[in-house]
């Protein structure tokens, strides 16, 4: 699957280019954070990666092979949960993989334990708080043991301790060898988690750099402005 090469991706909506020649190369290790202003096309890009959107032009090369059927999991900004127990929601993700029913429950319980929700396994998923819901969504993605995990703002509107819990889980997933591509507007989080940063503006990649270099010396003017705009907030953190 890796190296993942995205070249010149284009996607139009309502007569406007949302992805406007986006190119990117991702190696097989670590956490990459996608940064960029609202409406830059980050979510759309993640959607094309997990196959929900067909780009109008451009090409994605999955390490020289065909697009893998499984192995890419996505956590949406607003995850939807079935009217079922936590356990049922996690097991759901294993069904398309044809995991035997007996094994499904064991695997689901194991990941629920690791996201700290096992004691609520039988509760209704719809009764969870926002932070718990994000953890459940992570568990649901994690249980499939993806090679590539796409996270769309997994900590938006969470309190600091929930943010920390999510970050701990993300790191844990990564240590198991899962490649993580994640968007966030929390620059502190980016510095804490990222190995490298991809900065997107107006549907194209402006900059792709290791995290320290990106924050110390952003190369593109757009990235510099973006970081500066966020700076006061970052100091208060």
């Amino acid at each position: 699957m890796f190296p993942l090469r995205v070249s010149d991706l284009r996607w139009h909506a309502a007569g406007r280019a949302v992805l406007d020649g986006l190119s990117l190369e991702l190696g097989g290790e670590g956490i990459t954070i996608l940064l960029g202003p609202n409406g830059a096309g980050k979510s759309v890009f993640l959607r094309t990666l997990c196959g929900l959107l067909e780009p109008d032009a451009g090409h994605i090369d999955w390490g020289g092979a065909a697009r893998p059927e499984f192995g890419v999991a996505m956590v949406f900004q607003q995850p939807k949960m079935l009217r079922d127990s936590l356990l049922g929601n996690v097991e759901l993700a294993l069904r398309p993989l044809k995991v035997p029913a007996a094994e499904r429950q064991a695997r689901a319980r194991a990941v629920l334990e690791r996201v700290g929700l096992l004691h609520r396994a039988r509760d209704s998923a719809r009764s969870l708080s926002g932070g718990e819901r994000q953890r459940l969504a992570l568990a649901r993605a994690w249980v499939t043991r993806p090679r590539l995990l796409l996270l769309d703002e997994p900590t938006a509107s969470l309190d600091p301790s929930s943010v920390e819990a999510i970050e701990r889980i993300v790191r844990e997933i990564r240590t198991e060898g899962t490649r993580i591509l994640m968007t966030t507007h929390n620059l502190g989080q980016a510095t804490r988690l990222a190995d490298d940063v991809v900065f997107i503006d107006a549907g194209r990649v402006c900059e792709h750099a290791p995290v320290q270099r990106f924050f110390a010396r952003p190369a593109s003017p757009a990235a510099r402005l973006y970081i500066q705009g966020e700076l006061p907030w970052r100091m208060a953190f």
Partner: peptide, 11 residues
């Protein structure tokens, strides 16, 4: 409501 989730899970 669920289309994206289920499709992403490859249902």
């Amino acid at each position: 409501d669920y289309e994206e989730e289920l499709t992403a899970m490859r249902f």
